[in-house]
């Protein structure tokens, strides 16, 4: 019986190890294919050139720039609102009824499918506010979409600052905001920064909402205002892989675009992970 129990344990644990291995394998295979497929076509010219001949030649510069603009919009809208909300939720409304309502709202907002955000953007920014199919409509939509992620990471960072720090500050006669500004935010900053990078990278990789708010298939120029139409990297991958005129001939372009997107998004994620690790080791309460 004892032998039996041991054998069961061995078998089950081997299975679990297999599961973990399988997941790592999936990641490696996925990255492997994209990287090896994409390197062939990747070049400076590809990154900085305009697309030509209905995207079958030339580069993806407008798509890169479009994605950067989107990130910029998200950065300037989602981040401040997210951080302010997080401060309010942790420092002012921690346990009240209103606090619960806010928490519920953020939790549910995080679960809304991205395509539904697209519908929201279409209805409100494109149609109702009259921004049309434009960079700003898409950017605002992505900002709302990333807001819950920004709030929850900032909230976690702020809540991780121990209450003893706040008490010490209050005991010295500081006001609430002075306490937050001088004693809470500085310690929470690395965490907030990490959340910011993750939110922006999430926005950079998102495709579905763009499809309803005005992403363009091909442009020979860069957008000249926030109300102009734009290209974006993730949509370019989708478009080239499913609708371009010669799917097989443009495979290298598809791979290379996917690789650029992957490098951009994973680069940011990796940076965030390293940053977090670094600061987690520094402040250990």
């Amino acid at each position: 019986m004892m032998l039996n129990r041991r054998a069961t344990e061995m078998a089950v644990f081997t299975l679990f190890r297999g599961c973990a291995l399988l997941v790592v394998l999936a990641l490696v295979v996925l990255l492997g294919y994209i990287v090896s497929g994409g390197l062939e076509r990747l070049s400076v010219e590809f990154l900085t050139g305009m697309p030509r001949r209905a995207n079958t030649e030339g580069g993806i510069f407008p798509a890169i720039v479009g994605t950067f603009y989107l990130m910029l919009i998200v950065l300037s809208i989602s981040v401040p609102i997210g951080v302010m909300s997080a401060i309010y939720m942790v420092e002012y409304e921690q346990n009240s009824l209103m606090g619960k309502v806010f928490k519920m709202a953020v939790y549910n907002l995080a679960g809304v499918p991205s395509i539904v955000y697209g519908l929201l953007g279409l209805g409100i920014f494109v149609a109702f506010l009259g921004f049309g199919f434009s960079l700003i409509s898409a950017g605002l939509t992505l900002s709302i979409m990333t807001l819950p992620l920004m709030i929850s990471s900032a909230r976690e960072a702020i809540a991780a600052v121990p209450s003893t720090v706040r008490e010490a500050s209050y005991a010295l006669g500081a006001t609430k905001w002075q306490t937050i500004w001088h004693h809470v935010l500085p310690y929470a900053l690395p965490g907030i920064f990490t959340g910011m990078i993750l939110s922006v990278s999430r926005a950079a990789g998102e495709t579905a909402p763009l499809m309803l708010t005005g992403v363009a298939m091909s442009l020979q120029r860069l957008p000249d205002s926030f109300f102009d139409s734009f290209m974006a990297l993730p949509y370019h991958v989708f478009y080239m892989a499913t609708q371009s005129s010669d799917l097989l001939a443009t495979r290298p372009i598809q791979y290379a675009t996917a690789l650029v997107l992957l490098l951009l998004v994973l680069g940011m994620n990796l940076f965030a992970i390293v940053l977090r690790k670094r600061y987690r080791d520094r402040y250990r309460w």
Binding site: V23, G205, A241
Partner: peptide, 24 residues
């Protein structure tokens, strides 16, 4: 090592997964 790998996997844009499914 494994936990960052999981985070990386979570961070991959869905269009990339879609592309992989479509092509490979």
């Amino acid at each position: 090592i494994f936990k960052p790998a999981i985070e990386i996997l979570a961070g991959i844009p869905s269009v990339i997964f879609g592309f992989f499914a479509l092509v490979i």
